[in-house]
């Protein structure tokens, strides 16, 4: 970092913003934010990963932009200004996905649009971006996006592996397993199992961090 008087770009405090949401401050399992729609895309690994990246991009940049604007926003129309900025970012992401990864965007369908109402985005803007400088706000956005994405990817991994015996569309469970009577658990692919899996993840996460128990 060139300027020694300033706080370094990746100081301990800033790193905490980035890594906190990946562990004890995870937005999904601890803050219970943003479970909404995005879980519906976790039946396979690939859409889950694309969704995770999209959410990260949106949280990071909406945090950055609104943090830059924070001193000019009239408080009476605060919410609608936030919605407009977030919606614009989501539309950008949606258009880019449609143009460059058309196959995946078909699978994600309306769920990309629903990032707008994902509570993580609005929650982090309200709770962090409006009261902090752009750089920490950006890191906070990236951290929370990744923390959320991590859960999506974990879900996508197990649901695709157990439900279809594939990962990223490639078969990973050898044919010989099937010959010996192993069969895919189709239940894993159905929507309700996503919820049960999240429940189990919360269970594991909280048994390791006892202080989070209710």
């Amino acid at each position: 970092m060139s300027n020694k008087d300033k706080e370094p770009l990746f100081s301990a405090k800033n790193m905490k913003l980035l890594t906190g949401p990946l562990g004890s401050g995870n937005p999904v399992t601890v803050q219970i934010l943003g479970i909404c729609s995005a879980l519906a895309v976790t039946a396979k690994l690939q859409p889950a990963l694309v969704m995770a990246l999209s959410v990260t991009v949106v949280t990071a940049f909406s945090n950055l932009i609104l943090s830059l604007m924070r001193n000019t926003i009239p408080s009476r129309i605060r919410i609608i200004v936030q919605l407009v900025v977030v919606a614009a970012l989501v539309i950008l992401v949606d258009q880019v996905l449609k143009a460059f990864v058309y196959d995946v965007s078909k699978q994600l369908s309306v769920f990309v649009g629903l990032i707008i109402t994902n509570c993580i985005v609005m929650g982090r803007i309200e709770a962090f971006a409006l009261g902090n400088k752009p750089w920490p706000a950006f890191l906070d956005g990236v951290g929370n996006g990744l923390g959320y994405g991590m859960i999506l990817v974990i879900l996508g991994f197990f649901r695709e592996l157990l439900g279809a015996g594939t990962l990223w569309g490639y078969r990973v469970i050898p044919e010989s397993f099937y010959a010996h009577g192993y069969s895919n658990n189709g239940l894993m692919l159905l929507p309700p199992m996503a919820l049960i899996c999240v429940g189990v993840i919360i269970w594991i996460h909280r048994s390791r961090n006892k202080n989070l128990c209710e």
């Binding site: 159905l190 199992m193 996503a194 919820l195 209710e214």
Partner: peptide, 21 residues
Amino acid sequence: APLRGVGITFILTGLMGLAFM
């Protein structure tokens, strides 16, 4: 204890979802 509150709610929602299927 670790499942109390949110955790069990998720699992219940999942089970209700199965029933609705």
